[in-house]
Design a protein around this nucleic acid. Structure first.
Lengths: 198, 198
DNA sequence: GAGAATACGGACCGAGGGTCCGCTTTTCAA
DNA sequence: TTGAAAAGCGGACCCTCGGTCCGTATTCTC
């Protein structure tokens, strides 16, 4: 369990790789054509080092993703409203989905690489489980909506990386327009079933 | 433009490949581990033939998918209600989405292979464009719902192959339960915004 | 400062998608 | 019917890429 603490050259190289990969994925259009050898070269490191540090391609992607996700995660777990835990579910759900969308917009190629690129299903990751569980719980706390499990999946599916890419890529729809459209969609769903107000 | 008509051995081989691939993809758990060489071998054909007939892996997948989709497509374009064109939008939308879900359930590995496996975005395919356009138009014909473009994407996203696989795979949720959950979700969306009746 | 532990890196491997080209089959016009 | 050009065949071959291996270099510990 306890990590025996990394040697300092190992730590340095790990950071170098992370930085290099980060840069490469931002620069390149398609995540497919960033090769592991390239990442290693860009980081000034051998392939062996890269693979020892991250296990395999998926591991590198996951580490990168997790790193970029960190601030958002913090904001959700202990930040101020509307993302933080003090927000009532009815407002927090749209806020979370908006945040997810923005994250995908800001990290398009990386998100694509992780969610789509072969082999590993995006639904089997730990962070998807977190998002889904949180959303499900919030939904079930909103009166009038019943079971939140499927809706949570369905709403998250509306923010999937390749859909976002499809809608935002090539200068199709500007960021704000997309956010608005998603917001309207979510709102419509939340308003249904519970004609509480008005 | 005009296809110069295929030679008969070419036609025969094309069918053989299609059949072999169909069988292989049904048999195998993950689409990833059906190799092109394998397909060729199973069809009793050389790799060259396979690639000449379908261009590349994605082409083969597309052709297979299109073939399996054909009956459904016919039912939608000219069949009886609730899928056919005579159905009023309010009932046709749920019917279409249910049909999409069932199709994914019945063709899990193939759908996974096509939608997910690297390179080509599932959103750039011609058949996605058809589904989306149809759904969008229907939605916009339902009073009270405004722009149907994004909702059409979002609703279709709820039937994506890997999500379906995630929910149905490993004997998690039985077919009927999934259909019901999707139906409820769609219904909730359609009921909102337009408190027409009641 | 010595020895053990750990990490380095790039040569190497295997798999799989895709191509090439000499040979066979089909087609079609005479 | 026939013969030659067009179309197709197939599997050896190539190349890229993820991943491994191992002799060498660096770091840690005492």
């Amino acid at each position: 369990m306890a990590e025996p603490r990394a040697r300092k050259d190992a730590a340095r190289n790990r950071e170098a790789v992370l930085a290099a990969a980060d840069a490469l994925f931002s620069r390149r259009a398609s995540p497919e054509d960033v090769t592991m050898a390239e990442v290693a070269a860009a980081a000034g490191v051998g392939k062996g080092t890269l693979f020892r540090a991250f296990g395999d391609r998926a591991g590198l992607l996951r580490a990168l993703y997790e790193a970029r996700l960190e601030p958002l995660r913090a904001a959700i777990e202990s930040g101020p409203p509307p993302l933080g835990p003090a927000t009532p579910p009815r407002e927090r759900v749209p806020a979370l989905l908006d945040a997810a969308l923005c994250f995908k917009l800001d990290n398009r190629s990386l998100a694509m690489a992780l969610e789509e690129s072969g082999g590993t299903s995006p639904y089997r990751t730990e962070h998807y489980a977190r998002w889904h569980a949180m959303l499900r719980d919030l939904l079930e706390r909103i009166p009038g909506l019943g079971d939140g499990d499927f809706p949570a999946h369905a709403l998250l599916a509306a923010t999937r990386a390749d859909l976002v890419e499809h809608l935002a890529g090539e200068g199709r729809a500007p960021r704000e327009r997309l956010r608005e459209r998603l917001a309207r969609y979510v709102e419509r769903f939340l308003d249904s079933g519970a004609p509480v107000e008005r």
